[in-house]
Design a protein around this nucleic acid. Structure first.
Length: 474
DNA sequence: TTGTGTTTTATTGCCTCC
DNA sequence: GGAGGCAATAAAACACAA
Protein backbone atom coordinates (compact mmCIF):
# COMPACT_ATOMS: atom_id res chain seq x y z
CA UNK A 1 0.00 0.00 0.00
CA UNK A 2 2.95 2.20 0.34
CA UNK A 3 3.18 2.45 -3.35
CA UNK A 4 -0.35 3.41 -3.72
CA UNK A 5 0.06 5.85 -0.95
CA UNK A 6 2.92 7.36 -2.74
CA UNK A 7 0.93 7.51 -5.84
CA UNK A 8 -1.90 9.04 -4.01
CA UNK A 9 0.33 11.51 -2.36
CA UNK A 10 1.88 12.39 -5.64
CA UNK A 11 -1.43 12.82 -7.21
CA UNK A 12 -2.56 14.72 -4.24
CA UNK A 13 0.31 17.03 -4.68
CA UNK A 14 -0.59 17.57 -8.23
CA UNK A 15 -4.19 17.96 -7.53
CA UNK A 16 -3.56 20.13 -4.59
CA UNK A 17 -1.55 22.37 -6.72
CA UNK A 18 -4.63 22.97 -8.69
CA UNK A 19 -7.15 22.85 -5.98
CA UNK A 20 -6.96 21.45 -2.53
CA UNK A 21 -10.60 20.84 -2.40
CA UNK A 22 -12.37 18.28 -4.36
CA UNK A 23 -13.78 19.39 -7.58
CA UNK A 24 -17.23 18.80 -8.69
CA UNK A 25 -17.72 17.46 -12.09
CA UNK A 26 -19.18 19.91 -14.43
CA UNK A 27 -22.54 19.17 -15.93
CA UNK A 28 -20.85 18.42 -19.17
CA UNK A 29 -18.57 16.00 -17.54
CA UNK A 30 -21.35 14.41 -15.66
CA UNK A 31 -23.46 14.04 -18.68
CA UNK A 32 -20.65 12.61 -20.64
CA UNK A 33 -19.81 10.26 -17.88
CA UNK A 34 -23.36 9.23 -17.40
CA UNK A 35 -23.86 8.67 -21.01
CA UNK A 36 -20.78 6.64 -21.25
CA UNK A 37 -21.65 4.81 -18.12
CA UNK A 38 -24.94 3.79 -19.56
CA UNK A 39 -23.20 2.23 -22.42
CA UNK A 40 -20.20 0.93 -20.65
CA UNK A 41 -20.33 0.29 -17.01
CA UNK A 42 -16.88 -1.11 -17.20
CA UNK A 43 -14.96 0.98 -19.61
CA UNK A 44 -11.69 -0.29 -20.80
CA UNK A 45 -8.55 1.53 -20.02
CA UNK A 46 -8.53 2.97 -23.46
CA UNK A 47 -12.01 4.20 -23.05
CA UNK A 48 -11.18 5.71 -19.75
CA UNK A 49 -8.19 7.34 -21.21
CA UNK A 50 -10.09 8.86 -24.05
CA UNK A 51 -12.88 9.86 -21.82
CA UNK A 52 -10.48 11.43 -19.43
CA UNK A 53 -8.87 13.29 -22.21
CA UNK A 54 -12.09 14.53 -23.59
CA UNK A 55 -13.43 15.54 -20.25
CA UNK A 56 -10.15 16.85 -19.06
CA UNK A 57 -10.15 14.62 -16.11
CA UNK A 58 -7.56 12.25 -14.93
CA UNK A 59 -7.97 8.61 -15.63
CA UNK A 60 -8.04 8.11 -11.97
CA UNK A 61 -10.94 10.39 -11.67
CA UNK A 62 -12.67 8.57 -14.42
CA UNK A 63 -12.05 5.26 -12.84
CA UNK A 64 -13.11 6.54 -9.53
CA UNK A 65 -16.21 8.03 -10.91
CA UNK A 66 -17.20 4.84 -12.62
CA UNK A 67 -16.52 2.93 -9.51
CA UNK A 68 -18.63 5.20 -7.44
CA UNK A 69 -21.25 5.24 -10.04
CA UNK A 70 -21.47 1.52 -9.96
CA UNK A 71 -21.60 1.60 -6.24
CA UNK A 72 -24.32 4.09 -6.40
CA UNK A 73 -26.28 1.94 -8.72
CA UNK A 74 -25.76 -0.97 -6.52
CA UNK A 75 -26.67 0.85 -3.39
CA UNK A 76 -29.76 2.27 -4.88
CA UNK A 77 -30.81 -1.03 -6.21
CA UNK A 78 -30.29 -2.56 -2.86
CA UNK A 79 -32.29 0.08 -1.15
CA UNK A 80 -34.97 -0.25 -3.68
CA UNK A 81 -35.01 -3.91 -3.12
CA UNK A 82 -35.33 -3.45 0.57
CA UNK A 83 -38.07 -0.96 0.13
CA UNK A 84 -39.98 -3.33 -2.02
CA UNK A 85 -39.03 -6.38 -0.10
CA UNK A 86 -41.77 -6.08 2.41
CA UNK A 87 -44.38 -5.80 -0.21
CA UNK A 88 -43.11 -8.31 -2.58
CA UNK A 89 -40.57 -10.73 -1.37
CA UNK A 90 -40.70 -12.69 -4.49
CA UNK A 91 -39.55 -9.64 -6.26
CA UNK A 92 -36.51 -9.55 -4.10
CA UNK A 93 -35.72 -13.10 -4.84
CA UNK A 94 -36.05 -12.50 -8.48
CA UNK A 95 -34.02 -9.43 -8.27
CA UNK A 96 -31.32 -11.10 -6.35
CA UNK A 97 -31.17 -13.81 -8.84
CA UNK A 98 -31.13 -11.38 -11.59
CA UNK A 99 -28.49 -9.35 -10.00
CA UNK A 100 -26.02 -11.85 -11.12
CA UNK A 101 -26.68 -10.78 -14.59
CA UNK A 102 -26.23 -7.21 -14.17
CA UNK A 103 -27.96 -5.85 -11.23
CA UNK A 104 -24.71 -5.90 -9.49
CA UNK A 105 -23.13 -3.92 -12.15
CA UNK A 106 -19.95 -3.79 -10.22
CA UNK A 107 -19.58 -7.49 -10.54
CA UNK A 108 -18.08 -7.53 -7.17
CA UNK A 109 -15.57 -10.24 -6.94
CA UNK A 110 -16.44 -10.55 -3.35
CA UNK A 111 -19.75 -12.01 -4.20
CA UNK A 112 -18.76 -15.23 -5.71
CA UNK A 113 -22.30 -16.29 -6.37
CA UNK A 114 -22.60 -13.50 -8.81
CA UNK A 115 -19.51 -14.29 -10.60
CA UNK A 116 -21.08 -16.70 -12.95
CA UNK A 117 -21.74 -13.83 -15.19
CA UNK A 118 -19.20 -11.19 -14.90
CA UNK A 119 -20.57 -7.85 -15.92
CA UNK A 120 -17.32 -7.17 -17.53
CA UNK A 121 -17.76 -10.24 -19.60
CA UNK A 122 -21.18 -9.15 -20.51
CA UNK A 123 -19.83 -5.79 -21.33
CA UNK A 124 -17.05 -7.11 -23.41
CA UNK A 125 -19.36 -9.49 -25.07
CA UNK A 126 -21.65 -6.69 -25.79
CA UNK A 127 -18.84 -4.77 -27.24
CA UNK A 128 -17.50 -7.56 -29.25
CA UNK A 129 -20.87 -8.66 -30.41
CA UNK A 130 -20.64 -12.07 -28.90
CA UNK A 131 -23.79 -13.70 -27.83
CA UNK A 132 -25.59 -11.57 -30.30
CA UNK A 133 -26.16 -12.16 -33.86
CA UNK A 134 -25.72 -9.29 -36.18
CA UNK A 135 -29.44 -9.03 -36.35
CA UNK A 136 -29.66 -8.97 -32.63
CA UNK A 137 -27.18 -6.22 -32.45
CA UNK A 138 -29.00 -4.33 -35.06
CA UNK A 139 -32.18 -4.79 -33.21
CA UNK A 140 -30.62 -3.82 -30.02
CA UNK A 141 -29.25 -0.71 -31.47
CA UNK A 142 -32.47 0.00 -33.14
CA UNK A 143 -34.44 -0.44 -30.04
CA UNK A 144 -31.80 1.32 -28.13
CA UNK A 145 -31.74 4.36 -30.22
CA UNK A 146 -35.23 4.47 -31.43
CA UNK A 147 -36.74 3.95 -28.08
CA UNK A 148 -34.92 6.86 -26.79
CA UNK A 149 -32.75 8.40 -29.23
CA UNK A 150 -30.40 10.61 -27.48
CA UNK A 151 -31.51 9.01 -24.39
CA UNK A 152 -29.01 7.95 -21.91
CA UNK A 153 -31.02 5.17 -20.71
CA UNK A 154 -30.40 1.98 -22.40
CA UNK A 155 -32.14 -1.20 -22.93
CA UNK A 156 -29.09 -3.19 -23.48
CA UNK A 157 -28.94 -6.27 -21.48
CA UNK A 158 -26.85 -5.24 -18.60
CA UNK A 159 -25.99 -1.67 -18.58
CA UNK A 160 -29.46 -0.57 -17.80
CA UNK A 161 -30.22 -3.25 -15.36
CA UNK A 162 -30.12 -0.91 -12.53
CA UNK A 163 -32.68 1.39 -13.89
CA UNK A 164 -34.74 -1.40 -15.15
CA UNK A 165 -34.60 -2.93 -11.82
CA UNK A 166 -35.74 0.16 -10.14
CA UNK A 167 -38.40 0.69 -12.62
CA UNK A 168 -39.60 -2.80 -12.55
CA UNK A 169 -39.62 -3.42 -8.88
CA UNK A 170 -42.05 -0.78 -7.96
CA UNK A 171 -45.12 -2.72 -7.42
CA UNK A 172 -46.85 -0.39 -5.13
CA UNK A 173 -46.74 2.63 -7.22
CA UNK A 174 -48.82 3.84 -10.04
CA UNK A 175 -45.77 3.71 -12.05
CA UNK A 176 -46.48 0.09 -12.49
CA UNK A 177 -48.76 0.92 -15.24
CA UNK A 178 -45.76 2.00 -17.06
CA UNK A 179 -43.99 -1.02 -15.93
CA UNK A 180 -46.60 -3.32 -17.24
CA UNK A 181 -46.68 -1.33 -20.35
CA UNK A 182 -43.05 -1.77 -20.65
CA UNK A 183 -43.30 -5.41 -20.02
CA UNK A 184 -46.00 -5.72 -22.50
CA UNK A 185 -43.90 -3.98 -24.95
CA UNK A 186 -41.01 -6.11 -24.05
CA UNK A 187 -43.04 -9.04 -25.05
CA UNK A 188 -43.61 -7.45 -28.30
CA UNK A 189 -40.00 -6.91 -28.67
CA UNK A 190 -39.41 -10.50 -28.04
CA UNK A 191 -41.51 -11.19 -30.98
CA UNK A 192 -39.41 -8.81 -32.87
CA UNK A 193 -36.37 -10.67 -31.88
CA UNK A 194 -35.49 -8.59 -28.97
CA UNK A 195 -34.81 -10.76 -26.03
CA UNK A 196 -34.53 -9.17 -22.71
CA UNK A 197 -31.73 -10.78 -20.99
CA UNK A 198 -31.36 -11.84 -17.45
CA UNK A 199 -33.15 -9.61 -15.13
CA UNK A 200 -35.56 -8.25 -17.61
CA UNK A 201 -36.64 -11.63 -18.64
CA UNK A 202 -37.08 -13.03 -15.20
CA UNK A 203 -38.43 -9.90 -13.73
CA UNK A 204 -40.85 -9.33 -16.46
CA UNK A 205 -42.54 -12.61 -16.06
CA UNK A 206 -42.90 -12.30 -12.35
CA UNK A 207 -43.92 -8.72 -12.53
CA UNK A 208 -46.69 -9.53 -14.88
CA UNK A 209 -48.10 -11.90 -12.38
CA UNK A 210 -47.93 -9.31 -9.68
CA UNK A 211 -49.54 -6.73 -11.86
CA UNK A 212 -52.21 -9.15 -12.76
CA UNK A 213 -52.84 -9.70 -9.10
CA UNK A 214 -53.18 -6.01 -8.56
CA UNK A 215 -55.57 -5.75 -11.40
CA UNK A 216 -57.65 -8.46 -9.91
CA UNK A 217 -57.69 -6.75 -6.61
CA UNK A 218 -58.84 -3.63 -8.21
CA UNK A 219 -61.47 -5.58 -9.96
CA UNK A 220 -61.45 -3.20 -12.80
CA UNK A 221 -60.28 -3.35 -16.23
CA UNK A 222 -56.81 -2.22 -16.59
CA UNK A 223 -56.25 0.29 -19.26
CA UNK A 224 -53.32 -0.40 -21.33
CA UNK A 225 -52.99 3.16 -22.39
CA UNK A 226 -55.19 4.85 -19.94
CA UNK A 227 -55.08 6.11 -16.44
CA UNK A 228 -53.49 4.22 -13.71
CA UNK A 229 -54.94 0.92 -12.79
CA UNK A 230 -58.53 1.61 -13.31
CA UNK A 231 -58.43 5.01 -11.82
CA UNK A 232 -59.93 7.71 -13.85
CA UNK A 233 -58.89 11.21 -13.30
CA UNK A 234 -60.33 14.43 -14.26
CA UNK A 235 -58.43 16.25 -16.80
CA UNK A 236 -56.33 19.02 -15.54
CA UNK A 237 -57.31 22.46 -16.56
CA UNK A 238 -55.19 23.75 -19.34
CA UNK A 239 -53.61 26.26 -17.10
CA UNK A 240 -52.61 23.81 -14.49
CA UNK A 241 -49.02 24.07 -13.47
CA UNK A 242 -48.59 26.87 -15.83
CA UNK A 243 -48.25 24.38 -18.52
CA UNK A 244 -50.50 22.69 -20.97
CA UNK A 245 -50.00 19.30 -19.56
CA UNK A 246 -53.43 18.42 -20.60
CA UNK A 247 -54.67 20.13 -23.63
CA UNK A 248 -52.84 18.80 -26.52
CA UNK A 249 -50.64 16.97 -24.20
CA UNK A 250 -53.23 14.36 -23.82
CA UNK A 251 -53.17 13.55 -27.36
CA UNK A 252 -51.83 10.12 -27.44
CA UNK A 253 -48.48 9.71 -28.89
CA UNK A 254 -48.44 7.15 -31.53
CA UNK A 255 -45.55 5.13 -32.56
CA UNK A 256 -46.34 2.46 -34.95
CA UNK A 257 -49.37 0.72 -33.64
CA UNK A 258 -48.69 1.65 -30.14
CA UNK A 259 -50.63 4.46 -28.72
CA UNK A 260 -48.95 6.10 -25.85
CA UNK A 261 -50.56 8.62 -23.70
CA UNK A 262 -49.18 10.90 -21.23
CA UNK A 263 -50.44 9.57 -17.98
CA UNK A 264 -52.66 11.78 -16.06
CA UNK A 265 -50.81 12.78 -13.02
CA UNK A 266 -53.60 14.41 -11.21
CA UNK A 267 -54.43 12.51 -8.16
CA UNK A 268 -51.32 10.56 -8.29
CA UNK A 269 -49.54 11.25 -5.15
CA UNK A 270 -45.99 10.84 -4.32
CA UNK A 271 -44.48 7.53 -5.15
CA UNK A 272 -41.94 9.10 -7.23
CA UNK A 273 -40.01 7.06 -9.52
CA UNK A 274 -36.31 6.78 -9.24
CA UNK A 275 -34.45 9.68 -10.48
CA UNK A 276 -30.93 10.64 -10.11
CA UNK A 277 -29.87 14.10 -9.68
CA UNK A 278 -28.41 13.65 -12.97
CA UNK A 279 -31.69 12.67 -14.37
CA UNK A 280 -33.27 15.63 -12.87
CA UNK A 281 -30.53 17.71 -14.10
CA UNK A 282 -30.80 16.19 -17.43
CA UNK A 283 -34.46 16.70 -17.67
CA UNK A 284 -33.95 20.23 -16.61
CA UNK A 285 -31.43 20.74 -19.21
CA UNK A 286 -33.66 19.25 -21.74
CA UNK A 287 -36.30 21.62 -20.71
CA UNK A 288 -33.90 24.41 -20.63
CA UNK A 289 -32.53 23.74 -23.96
CA UNK A 290 -35.90 23.46 -25.40
CA UNK A 291 -36.55 26.87 -24.22
CA UNK A 292 -34.33 28.34 -21.63
CA UNK A 293 -36.69 31.08 -20.96
CA UNK A 294 -39.31 28.69 -19.91
CA UNK A 295 -37.17 27.46 -17.21
CA UNK A 296 -36.73 30.79 -15.73
CA UNK A 297 -40.29 31.76 -15.97
CA UNK A 298 -41.36 28.57 -14.52
CA UNK A 299 -38.82 28.72 -11.88
CA UNK A 300 -39.87 32.10 -10.75
CA UNK A 301 -43.44 31.20 -10.43
CA UNK A 302 -42.91 27.79 -9.20
CA UNK A 303 -41.15 28.76 -6.10
CA UNK A 304 -44.46 29.32 -4.50
CA UNK A 305 -45.94 26.15 -5.66
CA UNK A 306 -44.33 23.95 -3.13
CA UNK A 307 -43.70 20.31 -2.98
CA UNK A 308 -46.97 19.25 -4.39
CA UNK A 309 -46.23 20.69 -7.69
CA UNK A 310 -42.75 19.46 -7.56
CA UNK A 311 -43.98 16.02 -6.94
CA UNK A 312 -46.37 16.18 -9.74
CA UNK A 313 -43.79 17.43 -12.03
CA UNK A 314 -41.43 14.87 -10.80
CA UNK A 315 -43.93 12.24 -11.48
CA UNK A 316 -44.47 13.65 -14.82
CA UNK A 317 -40.87 13.58 -15.45
CA UNK A 318 -40.45 10.16 -14.07
CA UNK A 319 -43.35 8.89 -15.93
CA UNK A 320 -41.75 10.03 -19.01
CA UNK A 321 -38.62 8.37 -18.08
CA UNK A 322 -40.41 5.17 -17.67
CA UNK A 323 -39.43 2.59 -20.15
CA UNK A 324 -42.78 2.44 -21.72
CA UNK A 325 -42.72 6.05 -22.48
CA UNK A 326 -39.42 5.88 -24.01
CA UNK A 327 -40.90 4.73 -27.17
CA UNK A 328 -42.53 7.97 -27.73
CA UNK A 329 -40.50 10.18 -25.59
CA UNK A 330 -37.08 9.93 -26.90
CA UNK A 331 -35.63 11.77 -24.06
CA UNK A 332 -32.15 11.80 -23.00
CA UNK A 333 -32.53 9.92 -19.85
CA UNK A 334 -29.82 8.02 -18.18
CA UNK A 335 -30.30 4.80 -16.48
CA UNK A 336 -28.53 6.36 -13.65
CA UNK A 337 -29.14 5.87 -10.06
CA UNK A 338 -31.75 7.21 -7.84
CA UNK A 339 -31.60 10.16 -5.69
CA UNK A 340 -34.92 9.58 -4.18
CA UNK A 341 -36.14 6.14 -4.12
CA UNK A 342 -37.39 5.33 -0.71
CA UNK A 343 -39.73 6.79 1.72
CA UNK A 344 -37.09 8.90 3.26
CA UNK A 345 -36.31 10.52 0.05
CA UNK A 346 -39.62 10.80 -1.59
CA UNK A 347 -39.95 14.27 -0.44
CA UNK A 348 -36.53 14.93 -1.66
CA UNK A 349 -37.41 14.42 -5.20
CA UNK A 350 -36.21 17.75 -5.99
CA UNK A 351 -33.20 19.00 -7.56
CA UNK A 352 -30.22 19.02 -5.43
CA UNK A 353 -26.59 18.70 -5.57
CA UNK A 354 -24.89 19.34 -8.78
CA UNK A 355 -27.72 20.88 -10.53
CA UNK A 356 -27.86 23.71 -8.23
CA UNK A 357 -24.23 23.90 -7.71
CA UNK A 358 -22.31 26.68 -9.00
CA UNK A 359 -19.18 26.10 -10.80
CA UNK A 360 -16.27 28.04 -9.79
CA UNK A 361 -14.17 29.82 -12.23
CA UNK A 362 -11.79 26.99 -11.93
CA UNK A 363 -14.35 24.63 -13.09
CA UNK A 364 -14.46 25.25 -16.69
CA UNK A 365 -16.60 23.28 -18.94
CA UNK A 366 -14.15 20.81 -20.29
CA UNK A 367 -15.88 20.47 -23.51
CA UNK A 368 -18.66 22.83 -23.94
CA UNK A 369 -19.57 21.17 -27.11
CA UNK A 370 -19.49 18.00 -25.19
CA UNK A 371 -21.87 19.49 -22.83
CA UNK A 372 -24.00 20.73 -25.60
CA UNK A 373 -23.93 17.44 -27.17
CA UNK A 374 -25.58 15.88 -24.27
CA UNK A 375 -27.82 18.76 -23.90
CA UNK A 376 -28.59 18.53 -27.50
CA UNK A 377 -32.09 18.37 -28.73
CA UNK A 378 -33.36 15.00 -29.35
CA UNK A 379 -33.65 15.68 -32.96
CA UNK A 380 -30.02 16.20 -33.36
CA UNK A 381 -29.28 13.09 -31.48
CA UNK A 382 -31.79 11.20 -33.44
CA UNK A 383 -30.18 12.29 -36.59
CA UNK A 384 -26.87 11.46 -35.16
CA UNK A 385 -27.86 8.00 -34.33
CA UNK A 386 -29.94 7.25 -37.27
CA UNK A 387 -27.55 8.65 -39.70
CA UNK A 388 -24.74 6.43 -38.77
CA UNK A 389 -23.57 4.86 -35.69
CA UNK A 390 -19.86 5.07 -35.24
CA UNK A 391 -18.03 1.89 -34.86
CA UNK A 392 -17.13 2.62 -31.34
CA UNK A 393 -18.57 4.54 -28.57
CA UNK A 394 -15.65 6.81 -28.42
CA UNK A 395 -15.97 7.55 -32.06
CA UNK A 396 -19.52 8.35 -31.51
CA UNK A 397 -18.44 10.39 -28.62
CA UNK A 398 -16.09 12.36 -30.74
CA UNK A 399 -18.47 12.66 -33.56
CA UNK A 400 -21.22 13.96 -31.46
CA UNK A 401 -18.90 16.31 -29.81
CA UNK A 402 -17.95 17.81 -33.09
CA UNK A 403 -21.41 17.78 -34.41
CA UNK A 404 -22.70 19.62 -31.47
CA UNK A 405 -20.06 22.19 -31.81
CA UNK A 406 -21.62 23.42 -34.94
CA UNK A 407 -25.05 22.91 -33.72
CA UNK A 408 -24.75 25.18 -30.80
CA UNK A 409 -22.58 27.83 -32.16
CA UNK A 410 -25.16 30.55 -31.94
CA UNK A 411 -25.66 29.93 -28.32
CA UNK A 412 -24.94 32.48 -25.78
CA UNK A 413 -25.74 33.03 -22.24
CA UNK A 414 -28.57 35.06 -21.13
CA UNK A 415 -27.96 37.99 -19.01
CA UNK A 416 -30.32 39.09 -16.39
CA UNK A 417 -32.25 41.10 -18.87
CA UNK A 418 -32.58 38.13 -21.08
CA UNK A 419 -33.72 36.17 -18.19
CA UNK A 420 -36.49 38.53 -17.49
CA UNK A 421 -37.41 38.50 -21.07
CA UNK A 422 -37.26 34.80 -20.98
CA UNK A 423 -39.60 34.71 -18.09
CA UNK A 424 -42.12 36.66 -19.98
CA UNK A 425 -41.52 34.60 -22.98
CA UNK A 426 -42.09 31.50 -21.00
CA UNK A 427 -45.51 32.55 -19.95
CA UNK A 428 -46.41 33.10 -23.48
CA UNK A 429 -44.92 29.96 -24.80
CA UNK A 430 -45.98 27.54 -22.26
CA UNK A 431 -49.55 27.04 -23.20
CA UNK A 432 -48.59 26.51 -26.74
CA UNK A 433 -46.43 23.62 -26.31
CA UNK A 434 -47.53 20.22 -27.21
CA UNK A 435 -46.33 18.00 -24.51
CA UNK A 436 -48.15 15.05 -25.73
CA UNK A 437 -46.43 14.71 -28.97
CA UNK A 438 -43.11 15.91 -27.89
CA UNK A 439 -40.73 14.69 -25.38
CA UNK A 440 -41.09 15.64 -21.85
CA UNK A 441 -38.11 17.71 -22.40
CA UNK A 442 -40.66 20.19 -23.43
CA UNK A 443 -42.64 19.75 -20.36
CA UNK A 444 -42.39 22.34 -17.73
CA UNK A 445 -39.29 22.00 -15.75
CA UNK A 446 -39.50 21.63 -12.10
CA UNK A 447 -38.98 24.06 -9.47
CA UNK A 448 -35.46 25.08 -8.93
CA UNK A 449 -34.72 24.24 -12.40
CA UNK A 450 -31.19 25.33 -12.85
CA UNK A 451 -31.30 27.45 -9.88
CA UNK A 452 -28.52 29.84 -9.92
CA UNK A 453 -26.57 27.91 -12.40
CA UNK A 454 -28.89 28.53 -15.19
CA UNK A 455 -26.93 31.39 -16.47
CA UNK A 456 -23.78 29.52 -16.17
CA UNK A 457 -24.82 26.62 -18.16
CA UNK A 458 -24.33 26.83 -21.80
CA UNK A 459 -27.60 26.59 -23.42
CA UNK A 460 -28.15 24.41 -26.33
CA UNK A 461 -31.10 26.40 -27.31
CA UNK A 462 -30.65 27.48 -30.80
CA UNK A 463 -32.56 29.00 -33.56
CA UNK A 464 -32.96 25.71 -35.19
CA UNK A 465 -34.49 24.32 -32.18
CA UNK A 466 -36.64 27.29 -31.75
CA UNK A 467 -37.95 26.64 -35.14
CA UNK A 468 -38.40 23.04 -34.36
CA UNK A 469 -40.19 23.75 -31.17
CA UNK A 470 -42.39 26.29 -32.68
CA UNK A 471 -43.20 24.10 -35.56
CA UNK A 472 -44.19 21.39 -33.21
CA UNK A 473 -46.43 23.81 -31.51
CA UNK A 474 -47.93 24.81 -34.71
C1' DT B 1 -28.24 33.36 8.26
C1' DT B 2 -27.51 29.06 10.16
C1' DG B 3 -28.06 24.25 11.09
C1' DT B 4 -29.13 19.90 9.18
C1' DG B 5 -29.37 16.36 5.91
C1' DT B 6 -28.09 14.51 1.41
C1' DT B 7 -25.17 13.76 -2.45
C1' DT B 8 -20.84 13.72 -4.65
C1' DT B 9 -15.97 13.26 -4.74
C1' DA B 10 -11.60 11.61 -3.09
C1' DT B 11 -8.94 8.46 -0.45
C1' DT B 12 -7.62 4.16 1.48
C1' DG B 13 -7.54 -0.73 2.37
C1' DC B 14 -8.74 -5.12 1.01
C1' DC B 15 -10.04 -8.67 -2.30
C1' DT B 16 -9.96 -11.34 -6.62
C1' DC B 17 -8.24 -12.36 -11.04
C1' DC B 18 -4.61 -12.76 -14.37
C1' DG C 1 2.70 -8.84 -7.86
C1' DG C 2 -0.04 -5.73 -10.56
C1' DA C 3 -4.46 -4.28 -12.11
C1' DG C 4 -9.00 -3.54 -11.38
C1' DG C 5 -12.80 -3.34 -8.45
C1' DC C 6 -15.58 -2.91 -4.06
C1' DA C 7 -16.48 -1.00 0.38
C1' DA C 8 -15.84 2.21 4.01
C1' DT C 9 -14.86 6.67 5.27
C1' DA C 10 -14.12 11.67 5.32
C1' DA C 11 -14.97 15.93 3.54
C1' DA C 12 -16.82 19.26 0.36
C1' DA C 13 -20.83 21.12 -1.91
C1' DC C 14 -25.35 21.90 -1.92
C1' DA C 15 -30.57 22.42 -0.77
C1' DC C 16 -33.79 23.42 2.39
C1' DA C 17 -36.17 24.51 6.65
C1' DA C 18 -36.27 27.22 10.75
Amino acid sequence: MEESNELHSEENKNSQDNNKKRKLKTPAQLMALEKFYNEHKYPTEEMKSQLAEQLRLSEKQISGWFCHRRLKDKRLSRDETQANGRQDRSSVVIQDRASGLGQDSCGSTKHGEHRFVDPREVESRRLSGHDFTAADITREYRSHYTERIGDMDNTSSESSSSLQDRLLTRKEDPYDVETSRYLTHTKGMENMGYKPSGFLKVKGEAENAAITAVKRQLGRQYWEDGPLLGVEFDLLPPGAFESPIIGSGHEPSTIGNTVLRSPDISGVKGQLSPSTRYEVYNSRLNSQQENPSIMHGFDLQEKKSGKQLRQKLTYLNDTNSSPGKNFSLDIYKPSGGISAYNSNKKDRMRTKGNYGRKFTSEQTEPCSDEYDKFMSPKIVQRNEYLKSRPSSSMEKFDGECKAMKDYHKPLRRMNSTDEMAGTKQARVNFPQRDYGTNSFAQMPPRKNQIKGTAMEMPSSFSEDETAETNSSVD
